[in-house]
Nucleic acid binder design. Structure first.
Lengths: 226, 226
DNA sequence: GTTAACATACCATACGGTCGGTATGTGTCA
DNA sequence: TGACACATACCGACCGTATGGTATGTTAAC
């Protein structure tokens, strides 16, 4: 059906369509419960196409994790939370941004690589490692601002920028787990309020009004963070 | 093979053995990737026994979640962190306890119901709800101490005891996710250090030495928290 | 003798993966 | 410029096995 040629790929190529389908379906059903036929149906391709592009289902798993890393990196790089001049304000804007994009259905805001890592960590090390690279690659992008804020504010701390960045990610991931268990996105947002309060405490900024304007229009996007 | 009679169940009955096997294997491989044959082999029973005790694989899922809730409730009720007279000390002792039991292999300290909830939340609502009851039942046990500590310390807060208890659970769950993604338990403990610091900030107790003695011998247990 | 607690054999299907084939683009050399 | 070789992208039938589940039989306690 409507096989798009290389010069008229109106639907995008099969590989990309499979990756997008995998991102959406695995976020909802998990990796093991997603069959390659599920993916082929959703992407409207045949099994032949699937195994032409991916050597195995596991290889597809690695590829979606990398696909996720690429798309979310671009997404966060373009996000509005980098705007403030003050480093701490940028950090708080990040948290506010993450909170703001937690809306709608679970499958639209939860984290693909967190879900996959938890599921396949023991049985598919390659996928796990790809997920790890996505997650920790993202946390690393927060470290510079944390370090700058600490220096700017003259904070002598017994914690590293690295560990705080990872903690922020842990709160997000944990919020997603609770949101799924309780079937309510509020549970994820709730923890981000505590995270924001914690960060303000760390930087002696309990009073500051650092509410950043995350333009609602720019927040209506589909993918989410690693 | 060594069929244990009702009056000589030296290995425990088949149902319990299946639940224990399910707890251990699902924590490692996830629910979907665990076949009922895996479970039968590990529990040393036949398929007939499995479907005698559980109507379906999904019913087994609900049953392990409930089994987990029961065993962890007993485990935490008997844990040493309840000892301190001061409510805040008990809360900090809880965090220290949770940190202390994060040792060894991932499958020995991670949370069954967190893993399952994340995986099956959309495809198996019954299992998800059973997981939710386990998780939020556990968080509820922390609320009284939080409320007491707040009153004792005269803290007027814009957060509820309920939400803090849930946040503590979120940090734990998120720590597990990062530990799996990075294949390193340190990542889970690291976040608990931030959680401890946050709680001290909340209760203006940054200076207090509330290091509780969690007797190492009493910590050598196999199961973990919901 | 009724019932709970298993065991054994079996079934239908779903699954990951293979394979031979076709259509289309692409580089190259006379 | 055209023809040929080759590569890429995809199709769809097929295969062996694993899986969830069932039907029936057997043992032992009450």
């Amino acid at each position: 059906m409507s096989r798009p040629t290389k010069h008229a790929p109106e639907r995008g190529n099969a590989r990309t369509r499979l990756l997008e389908a995998a991102r959406d379906i695995i976020r909802e059903k998990g990796f093991a419960a997603t069959s390659v036929e599920d993916l082929c149906k959703a992407a409207d391709v045949t099994k032949g196409a699937f195994f032409h592009h991916f050597a195995s289902k596991e290889a597809l798993g690695v590829a979606v994790a990398e696909f996720w890393a690429e798309t979310t990196t671009a997404y966060f790089a373009a996000a509005p939370y980098h705007a403030p001049d003050d480093a701490l304000a940028r950090i708080l804007a990040y948290v506010a941004f993450r909170k703001a994009i937690i809306t709608g259905a679970l499958k639209d805001f939860t984290c693909l690589v967190g879900t996959m890592a938890q599921e396949v960590h023991a049985s598919a090390p390659d996928i796990r490692d790809a997920c790890g690279r996505s997650i920790f690659g993202h946390t690393a992008t927060l470290e510079a601002d944390i370090e700058t804020a600490r220096r700017e504010r003259g904070i002598t701390a017994d914690w590293s920028a690295e560990s705080l960045a990872r903690h922020m990610q842990a709160v997000l991931q944990g919020g997603f787990v609770l949101a799924k268990a309780g079937n309510d996105p509020v549970l994820a947002r709730e923890s981000l309020d505590h995270l924001e309060r914690y960060i303000r405490h760390l930087f002696n900024a309990m009073e500051d009004d650092a509410h950043d304007e995350n333009d609602p229009d720019r927040l209506r996007l589909r993918t989410d963070a690693p």
